[in-house]
Design a protein around this nucleic acid. Structure first.
Lengths: 362, 362
DNA sequence: CTGAAAGCGCTTACAG
DNA sequence: CTGAAAGCGCTTACAG
């Protein structure tokens, strides 16, 4: 005897119906071709016993589970919530189930979540990873031939794996270019790129992989492109928490009175920065312009309405899911790096730079 | 031969290590007491072969999976996202894994999600259901003795099941009472209670179970409590979509010029209603006061800052998880109905009623 | 179409 | 402590 936790098995159903377990399995599992007569008998028996198939046992035999795992750092972030919808719609249509795990941005939690899914033999995995330098937690799945699609972030050294994200660098460059076009010169950036990685990037020592780093790189690109002078004091680093970005932006606004525009590299940074502008007493966009990242529901509710970089969030998810399906169907087997394009939604928070004094006047 | 989808099994590891599969199982599975010597040999073999345990097979034997299922209607809703965090924190600490399913508010999707989890023998289930009249999709799990905890919504007729939610009726009554206390008399409500259920409730023909219905009932309570006159035109029904609530609130504001305050029964309703006020040209709170539901990140970012009913969201999740743990440990077996208390956060969007003309003047 | 038997990958009494 | 054997609940060739 072991862990029989209640619930009749296929054996009891077969006995009740007076057929072999093979036959019971065929009608209950929907494979083979049992006769209509036996089907009725078996279903009746199953129903009267309250039978419910044990998907675990089936998966042990077939080797896979028909379930796709999705692991993201923060499902509370509207970006991932919406991408998930795209994923679910596509996968559900293909007859696959989706289970989700949230990692809280914690590498260790991610490692565990992936391991749990791998051990439970998910058919495939869509992963928005927080550990960009290290894909070791994926090797077992990959060596078993389970397809993995990376969403929003790549992982270094995993070139055979598919990835789907926006062209972060280009998106940021355009956003900042927009500000430069409006006459701004002292344009700050509030970014969740780390205090170690950010400067390393500036020094040319890092291959940008994180979205935040790529966006920071795009910010630099824009300055370069327009021949605008760059002041390192304009780059402000914050942890990925709204409260922290509030403090950072507040510090920026109080120490640098010349700043006329701010670009934020994520919706969390945008939240804190907007709050900082409000608290600082400066008017937006009269005194300081703002371009945020991600078009969330509240961005058109605040005053002024926010000019933002909008990602095709739903499509990112749907595209990732379609890549996974292609892999599952064996249609493709070379790593593909898919970049979708973000758009700049121009509203009211970014306006012409103030006090563009006519040249020649003091 | 069958679905062997790559990956060595415990048999190969045992062979490689020169031990029985029982011994290999003991060291790899962490049960029994294998000798240190064999442990080393087995681990070495497992490592060299790239072995990863098949949790499915283990679960088939033990009868359960160590995984708790959570199914919610909309993980993109900050309410559920935050509750999930509470759930995860508690469950993870107890050594259980959490998998999530999103139902999109679709009864059929919910039914399927619950079935998938049930078939995969989750150890327990936390469910925020959309099908309040019908708990049939839970009977198989329940009859197998798998604990189920209902979050945020109850299901009629499932009295032996635990549930955790706020006292919705009381919360709404207090919110509306606050408006009455500020001198408002024509207080409208924008609610996602359905157009059929809402009126049925008013007619006394429905036992309120849905949060939205309970909140509507609390709205009525407040009028009754203060002896304020009720006008059915003040009750506006909307689907659970922001766009729809915008239309509904816009209609309210254009057809009823006397309304001085609006209460919303969910954060989605709040979003649309606030937008409607902005578009209508009326000033908030000078012309019309607003009390929203749920304290989201943007509620203190908009102007005026919103007065809202705040749910102890994280605690709701944590409490549900703790109930589940108690059940899993056999500590409890009678259905418990746990009501947490919501609080009213008073900010700027609800102010004294305008034009409270002194009595006696025309 | 149907059944007896073997098998999936693991765990669990049962002897030793 | 260790192994041979039986078992978990299902599926899959293989005969008939």
């Amino acid at each position: 005897m072991s862990g029989r936790t209640g619930g009749p098995s296929i054996i009891e159903v077969a006995r009740e119906a007076g057929v072999s377990t093979a036959t019971a399995g065929r009608v209950l599992g929907g494979y083979g071709s049992p006769s209509e007569q036996l089907r009725i008998r078996v279903f009746a028996a199953a129903h009267s016993l309250g039978y419910e198939a044990n998907a675990l046992a089936r998966s042990v035999v077939t080797g896979r589970s028909g379930i796709v795992g999705v692991v993201v750092p923060d499902i509370g972030n509207p970006f991932f919530a919406r991408a998930l919808r795209g994923i679910s719609d596509v996968l559900r249509q293909a007859g696959l189930e989706v289970v989700l795990a949230n990692t809280d941005g914690d590498v260790e939690v991610e490692r565990r979540a992936v391991e749990v899914m791998s051990r439970n033999r998910v058919a495939g995995l869509i992963l928005a990873s927080v550990s960009l330098r290290d894909g070791r937690h994926l090797t077992k799945m990959l060596s078993r031939g389970v397809p993995v699609v990376l969403l929003d972030r790549e992982i270094e050294g995993l070139d055979e794996v598919d990835s789907v994200m926006i062209d972060n660098r280009l998106a940021a460059r355009r956003a900042v270019g927009h500000l430069i076009g409006l006459g701004h010169r002292r344009i700050a950036v509030v970014t969740e790129a780390t205090k170690t990685l950010g400067p390393a990037l500036l020094a040319g020592g890092v291959h940008a992989g994180l979205p935040s780093l790529l966006r920071l790189e795009g910010y630099l690109d824009a300055f370069r492109e327009h021949g605008t002078d760059l002041d390192l004091n304009l780059i402000r680093y914050s942890g990925l928490r709204r409260e922290e970005s509030l403090v950072v932006a507040l510090d920026l606004l109080s120490t640098d009175t010349e700043v006329t525009a701010i670009f934020c590299t994520s919706n969390v940074m945008t939240l804190g920065t907007l709050e900082a502008i409000q608290q600082s007493g400066r008017r937006c966009p009269d005194d300081v312009s703002l371009v945020g990242f991600d078009d969330l529901e509240w961005t058109s509710l605040v005053r002024p309405r926010l000019t933002v970089v909008a990602q095709p969030t739903y499509d990112l998810g749907a595209t990732a899911a379609n890549r996974l399906l292609a892999r599952l169907n064996g249609e493709s087997n070379t790593g593909q790096r898919i970049l979708l394009t973000a758009s700049l939604i121009i509203r009211e928070s970014a306006a012409a730079a103030p006090e563009t004094a006519p040249p020649g006047l003091p």
